Simulated scan of single mutants.
Amino acid sequence: MTSTDSTRSRWIRLLILAVVAVALAHALDGVAWRSARLLSVNDKDWGRLLRSMGYLPTWGVIALGFWLQQRDHPQRSRYAWALLLGPALSGGVAEVLKLLIRRLRPNPDVFEYAFRPFADGPLSNRGMGMPSSHTLVAFAGAAVLAQLYPRARWLWYTLAAGCAATRVLAMGHFLSDTVVAAVLGVAVSTLYWLRWVEPLPAP
């Protein structure tokens, strides 16, 4: 098998895994809606820590710190840009998809998927939850860190998953909102990395 065939096969496997994960998340939305509730999660220190992984300025600070460490190697500034632009682009993708999908956030009293008509504020994503912006940003940033520091990838993705969990616990999103966002966040940052960053030597 050639290198190209191997890469294509790997991407196909990842795509199948992503589709299965999204389908399973939708199947479990009702269970998560009923049993995974902690409305005070954002009042707890650990909850604020995890949610901040989906806060874009957090990645701006991380990118700045990386740039300061690597500023003697101008070419490596691409790594710092990846830490900022990967999450930023992903956040933009989330906002556009919310306007297109238009699925509302969970109703705490009734489990249902509700959608806002396009005629009702076509350019407003107020109250929309698919996909989760926080989760998309968190997983996009984690994907870049996983490229830079692969031995610690489990840590970056655990923090991103924690961010997703806070959004479900707070009833801000359905489980499927966060799983779709996780898949998209990793995809956007990985594609960005492969297109603009990968040719550089490791830091």
Rank of each mutant, 00 (worst) to 15 (best):
G141V: 07
R76P: 00
T178D: 12
G129Q: 11
G92N: 09
R76K: 12
R51Q: 13
Q70A: 15
L15S: 15
V137P: 06
V19K: 03
E112A: 15
A27C: 08
R116W: 00
P150L: 09
L39V: 14
V22E: 11
G60P: 01
L123N: 08
G141M: 06
F139W: 11
A140G: 12
D5E: 14
V19C: 14
G92D: 10
L85P: 01
T2K: 09
T135I: 04
F115M: 13
M1N: 10
Q70C: 09
L38Q: 14
A27M: 12
M128A: 06
G162V: 06
G172S: 07
L64Q: 01
L14K: 11
Q69N: 08
F174H: 15
G172R: 04
A165H: 02
Y55F: 14
P201Q: 03
N107T: 08
V179H: 00
L83A: 05
N42F: 15
T135Y: 02
A187P: 06
C163K: 02
S176V: 03
S9Y: 02
L64P: 00
L145M: 15
A202M: 11
P203Q: 05
A170E: 14
Q147N: 12
L38S: 12
G141E: 06
H134L: 04
L104E: 13
F115P: 10
A161M: 05
M1I: 10
L159V: 13
V93Y: 03
T58E: 01
S35P: 00
A165L: 13
T178P: 07
L15H: 07
A114Y: 04
L194Q: 15
R13K: 13
A138V: 09
L14Q: 15
M53Q: 13
P201S: 07
D177G: 08
L24N: 05
L200Q: 06
L145C: 15
M128Y: 00
S124C: 04
T166A: 02
S176G: 08
L100W: 00
R151I: 07
R103P: 09
T158M: 08
P203M: 06
L68S: 05
S176D: 11
C163L: 03
Y79D: 13
V22Q: 08
M130Q: 11
P201I: 07
R102W: 00
V186I: 13
A161H: 03
P122D: 02
I12W: 08
L39Q: 11
I101H: 03
A88Y: 13
V179L: 01
L159K: 01
E95P: 00
S132V: 04
T135N: 08
E198P: 00
V61T: 10
L17P: 03
S77I: 06
P203I: 09
K98T: 03
F118I: 12
P150C: 13
W67D: 03
